[in-house]
């Protein structure tokens, strides 16, 4: 019998997914520090929902449950979705989003390895379309809040949307800096003066920029561990810098700096954790560059001209559709063949 090779040297799918989760920890820590520990509740909710729905669907599809739960891919989806949602998102928002991500976007397409769309982004897009008001309101970072919510107040808010008597929803949450910038620009204000608002930090949004930087740190770990290749993050960040740089140079009064775009919203989460989802992304080295550049350009366009606060989710989903085309057009030259 010939079953060679007899040896292997590969991290298991579980190990890969575990390292992705590990790489998210600095970002989660920063998130909790900036917006409060409520995110941990969201993560727990999303994780349980993901595992439960995954198990239920696997049972319905008569697939082995244990190996597929152990691969931890559902948890990665859950965490990425939870981290994309506004802090202190109500519990049902988390549950509905995770349900869609796992059931519709993943299992109904055939489970691990068969989903053409990034499940977390599908979940996010569904929520954004269905509940735009909640999805665009982020609580102010704790440091900026007039009266920061305590741990129990956060829990209370997540599960019952009730606030201490003195507070009103609008007092605790507002638009994100990206969203704020867009609406203020429509009022014919200049970028320089808008950026003076307290919600703006050194590079991006006050507080959010630290979370973003922590995501970048985790991303570098993934790259060092050879879980992701340099192609996607590099191409994404360079393309985003390039397109925002061109607009900024043409009219600095109406377009934010490249650094702002990179350090705001979900840019770095996208660069290192979302577009690097191997299943729904391209496989050829060149294809990865085109894919990431496409996501960056679409993200920028949606951010600047679209109606949504951030463009990452739709940009990723649109580019997911192009993956088969990108792959087939960017096949590398095989050894001994002409191009």
């Amino acid at each position: 019998m010939n079953r060679s090779p007899y040896i292997s040297d590969a991290p298991s799918v579980s190990t890969i997914m575990f390292k992705v989760l590990l790489a998210l920890v600095p970002g989660i820590a920063a998130y909790a520090w900036v917006y409060g520990a409520g995110i941990l509740v969201s993560l727990t909710l999303a994780t349980s929902t993901a595992l439960l729905t995954e198990a239920a669907l696997l049972k319905l599809r008569q697939r082995p449950i244990k190996p597929y739960l152990m691969d931890m891919s559902a948890i990665v989806t859950a965490w990425l979705l939870a981290l994309s949602l506004p802090a202190l998102a109500p519990w049902w928002l988390v549950v509905i989003g995770t349900f869609f991500a796992i059931v519709i976007a993943k299992q109904l397409y055939g489970g691990l390895g068969y989903n053409p769309f990034n499940p977390a982004m599908v979940g996010y897009a569904v929520l954004l379309i269905s509940f735009p008001l909640i999805m665009t309101k982020w609580p102010a970072p704790l440091a900026l809040a007039a009266q920061p919510l305590s741990w129990s107040e956060q829990l209370n808010f997540i599960f019952s949307q009730s606030l201490p008597a003195a507070l009103h929803v609008d007092a605790t949450s507002s638009a994100t800096p990206l969203d704020y910038l867009k609406t203020q620009l429509l009022l014919n204000k200049e970028v320089a003066s808008i950026s003076l608002a307290p919600m703006f930090g050194h590079f991006g949004g006050q507080g959010q920029e630290y979370v973003t930087a922590a995501y970048g740190l985790g991303g570098l770990y993934l790259w060092q561990q050879r879980i992701i290749s340099w192609h996607l993050p590099t191409a994404f960040l360079l393309s985003l810098a390039a397109i925002s740089g061109v607009f900024y140079l043409v009219d600095p009064g109406h377009f934010a700096t490249p650094l702002f775009h990179i350090m705001s919203g979900a840019s770095l989460l996208c660069a290192f954790f979302i577009i690097t989802d191997p299943v729904s992304g391209p496989t050829t080295p060149k294809g990865k560059l085109y894919f990431a550049a496409g996501v960056a350009v679409l993200t920028y366009i949606i951010r600047v001209y679209g109606g949504y606060p951030d463009g990452v989710a739709f940009a990723v989903l649109i580019m997911n559709m192009c993956v088969p085309l990108i792959d087939s057009l960017t096949q590398p030259r095989v050894f001994g063949h002409e191009k």
Binding site: P67, S73, V279, F335, G336
Partner: peptide, 19 residues
Amino acid sequence: AMPCIRCTRCADACPVNLQ
């Protein structure tokens, strides 16, 4: 065997540049 997750480690390792 688990499903292929298209991680392309195989493509990186292929000495013939196949996919």
